[in-house]
Simulated scan of single mutants.
Amino acid sequence: MNAMHPDVETVLFSEEDIAAMVKRMGEEISRDYAGRDLVLIAVLRGAVVFMGDLMRAIDCPVAIDFMAVSSYGDGAKSSGIVRIIKDLDIDIKGRDVLIVEDILDSGLTLKYLMKNLASRKPASLEVATFLWKDVEGKQAAVNPKYVGTHCPDAFVVGYGLDYAERYRNLPYVGVLKPEVYS
């Protein structure tokens, strides 16, 4: 076990926990998409670590592509305005598309992204999220087909998740100490 970063309050999911979740999700996706034309689309930058592990856990042929969107502006809450900064390089028409997300919070950005991708006429369009944040009293705008696990409504970092572009390289997911971001 790697030493905990001094800015991290507690570790929620260890490297071993993450590996088990990714393996389970890879098996589910492999079973569901066997014999189909699957394209994984990662939303940059947070999902890139999860995407790398997930695609190696999938046993059927898979293509990958990336999108980058901006929806937060300067704050920690979504502005509701989504801009596509990097679009897909491949055509998804008639193909099975699985959006790979690091964390699902409100789901507003993802809902916009799904509407945009649906207009390109894929054969199917689903979501795989590593974490689904439990926000009390709120229902996410999107229901993912595949979920690594639920996590508390806390500021989580590691395994691709960042605060101010830091902590993405931590091999676990932990809760950031409030004094770091307040």
Rank of each mutant, 00 (worst) to 15 (best):
Ala140Asn: 13
Val127Gln: 07
Glu15Gln: 09
Leu117Cys: 08
Arg168Lys: 09
Asp96Cys: 14
Lys115Ala: 15
Pro122Lys: 03
Glu136His: 10
Tyr167Gly: 02
Gly137Met: 05
Thr129Cys: 13
Leu125Arg: 06
Pro122Cys: 07
Ala20Glu: 15
Leu44Lys: 01
Leu125Asp: 01
Ala68Arg: 12
Asp96Gly: 15
Gln139Met: 13
Asp53Gly: 09
Ser30Asp: 08
Leu44Ile: 00
Lys145Gln: 11
Leu98Asn: 02
Leu108Pro: 00
Leu54Tyr: 07
Ile41Lys: 05
Ala68Lys: 10
Leu113Lys: 03
Asp87Asn: 11
Gly107Lys: 00
Gly158His: 04
Cys60His: 12
Asp105Cys: 04
Met55Val: 15
Leu12Ile: 09
Gly73Gln: 08
Arg120Gly: 05
Gly148Trp: 03
Gly174Pro: 00
Ser14Gly: 09
Ala57Asp: 08
Val180Glu: 03
Lys86Arg: 11
Tyr167Phe: 14
Glu136Ile: 06
Asp17Tyr: 02
Asp37Val: 06
Phe50Ser: 04
Pro122Met: 02
Ile85Leu: 11
Tyr72Trp: 13
Ser70Asp: 14
Lys23Gly: 06
Ala123Ser: 13
Leu98Arg: 01
Phe130Asp: 02
His150Tyr: 15
Pro144Trp: 04
Cys60Phe: 05
Asn169Cys: 10
Val135Ala: 05
Ala42Ile: 01
Gly160Gln: 01
Gly52His: 03
Ser79Trp: 05
Val39Pro: 03
Lys77Leu: 13
Ser119His: 07
Ser119Ile: 06
Val135Gly: 02
Lys133Ala: 01
Ser71Glu: 10
Ala34Tyr: 14
Met25Arg: 08
Arg166Trp: 06
Ala76Gln: 15
Leu108Ile: 07
Met67Val: 03
Gly73Ser: 10
Ala141Asn: 07
Glu16Thr: 15
Leu113Ser: 03
Leu54Val: 06
Gly137Pro: 01
Lys145Cys: 11
Val49His: 01
Ile64Gly: 01
Lys145Pro: 11
Asp105Tyr: 01
Glu9Ile: 08
Met25Leu: 14
Leu38Glu: 03
Val173Ala: 03
Glu16Ile: 12
Met25Phe: 12
Asp89Pro: 03
Leu113Gln: 02
Ala3Val: 14
Glu9Thr: 05
Leu125Cys: 07
Gly46Trp: 00
Ala154Ile: 01
Pro178Ala: 09
Leu88Cys: 07
Asp37Gly: 02
Lys177Pro: 04
Glu9Leu: 05
Phe13Ser: 06
Pro178Glu: 10
Val127Lys: 12
Glu15Trp: 11
Pro61Asn: 08
Asp153Tyr: 09
Met1Gly: 13
Gly26Phe: 05
Glu179Gln: 13
Met1Leu: 15
Asn169Lys: 12
Asp153Ala: 13
Gly46Phe: 00
Arg36Met: 12
Gly160Phe: 00
Gly35Asp: 10
Val156His: 02
Gly73Met: 08
Leu104Asp: 01
Cys60Gln: 10
Val82Met: 12
Gly148Tyr: 02
Lys177Gln: 08
Gly26Ile: 01
Val157Ser: 01
Val22Glu: 00
Pro144Asn: 11
Ser14Pro: 10
Thr10His: 09
Ser70Gln: 14
Ala68Ser: 15
Val97Glu: 03
Val82Arg: 09
Pro144Phe: 02
Gly107Pro: 06
Val175Gln: 00
His5Met: 00
Pro6Gly: 03
Val100Phe: 04
Arg166Asn: 11
Glu9Gln: 13
